[in-house]
Design a protein around this nucleic acid. Structure first.
Lengths: 245, 245
DNA sequence: GAGTGGTCTAGACCACCCG
DNA sequence: GGGTGGTCTAGACCACTCG
């Protein structure tokens, strides 16, 4: 099988999937429209039906297509945007949205993990962890106080590095140590700003805060980072997708 | 092929998937353990490798397994719990968690949709919509003010029915009208309780509220319901999974 | 080189939906 | 009955990892 990498080293089902996606998003295939049958499409792409189905299944999972057994496959009316249900880099993402962003390091220290942090990271209470506390500023407004914890054992070189830069892409930093972050669990609640938080975010004491706790894991399920953050309620919101099943 | 429905009408890949899931969750296959190769497993289940892969791919997507190309397939160290990233029924879910829950209907009316509601539901501004406003009470504490909107055109019989009961499972009600809700988009922020909200939730004016807006869709992408809710910040939090890509 | 997962084929029969 | 998606097979070769 060498038509597999026709041009580049990309599998056929991915090339076909992206071609279909492009045709949908460009409007060539319009919303609600019925696609040709799987057999026809497979023939037109010159692949087997199983391969074509692999392409389409990805798009069905994304909500771009839906299938009706015995009827056909259709372009969904509503296309679901990507959002906070997947991992992304705050700085890159903000810039893509045309926002000016900045970050100020408030504190970087190596401390013994308190129980909550140790538990989240799968360490013993009191193990050495790095605490990185930063203030994120969007369009001149301080918006988030970020407090990340990760193992000093695994990342001892962090403290000897250009923290200013590393802190802007911790995921890349973790990956440089062989830990690819692939999943996470996040918890949100609303609370009132304590004096220290209020001062840093330039809001009144008692103003609403969107509080977030998050643990990140590799695909193996190894915890890599535990994070708290306090976000200004009036300037920060979180959007995410829901799905059945 | 008639081994397909060996016992019930359940496809093999689903039976195999659930068997594997059980073996993992029961601890028979322990965390971090390497599974037999796909070929071996396929043989032991008496199916082709493609069929076995279909079973395993589902579990990989869930985060129960992970694959290493050229090495093998392993049980993840961390199993990801299901949570607010999927649709669920508040009442059923709360009871499963052993909580006593109750709901009080505050208002049910048919009104012209204001712009935000109309837009979310794909209707024209001023179209007739049903507004259902309820107060949800957990363990005796009022916790959420729920305000749902849906098309009067599609659901005109709602107002003639036992609203008290229907309101406890709107998803089932929508489905009884041929609209299966499969996806949604949700937005959260933190805000301060207005006097009316504070009174209903029995909290002080200005106390933190976790505010949620949500639109629900069928798999075809037809919007079915638009919802606001105000949740007590100190008693309500939202957990959801993140994933890469 | 041996073993693993990743991709792919060229068929097959089934279940479902519609006219 | 004809068309569609859903499931399944019994192979094949490739890419990757490891010793």
């Amino acid at each position: 099988m060498d038509s597999l990498n026709s041009l580049t080293g990309i599998p056929q089902y991915i090339r076909i999937r992206e071609d279909l996606r492009t045709r949908i998003l460009s409007g060539e295939l319009s919303r609600g429209e019925k696609l040709p049958s799987e057999e026809e499409l497979a023939a037109s792409y010159g692949v087997s039906r199983m391969t074509l189905r692999q392409s389409m299944s990805d798009l069905v999972d994304e909500g771009l297509l839906y299938r009706k057994h015995g009827v056909g496959t259709f372009v969904a009316l509503q296309h679901f945007a990507r959002d906070h249900s997947y991992l992304q880099n705050f700085f890159e993402n903000s810039r893509q949205n045309g926002l000016s962003v900045d970050e100020k390091i408030l504190e970087m220290s190596v401390i013994p993990a308190r129980l909550q942090v140790a538990k989240a990271l799968g360490l013993l209470e009191g193990s050495q962890v790095i605490r990185l506390k930063t203030l994120r500023i969007v369009e001149g407004n301080p918006i988030t106080i970020h407090e990340a914890y990760f193992s000093f054992d695994k990342f001892s070189d962090f403290v000897e590095n250009d923290v200013e830069n590393l802190s802007k892409d911790l995921l890349a930093y973790y990956e440089s140590h062989g830990l690819k972050v692939r999943r996470g669990v996040q918890r949100l609640d609303a609370r009132s700003a304590e004096p220290e938080v209020a001062a840093l975010l330039a809001i009144e004491v008692g103003a609403p805060i969107l509080y977030k706790e998050r643990t990140l894991y590799t695909e193996e399920g190894i915890p890599v980072e535990f994070l708290f953050c306090h976000n200004r309620g009036d300037l920060y919101s979180v959007t995410f997708n829901l799905s059945a099943e």
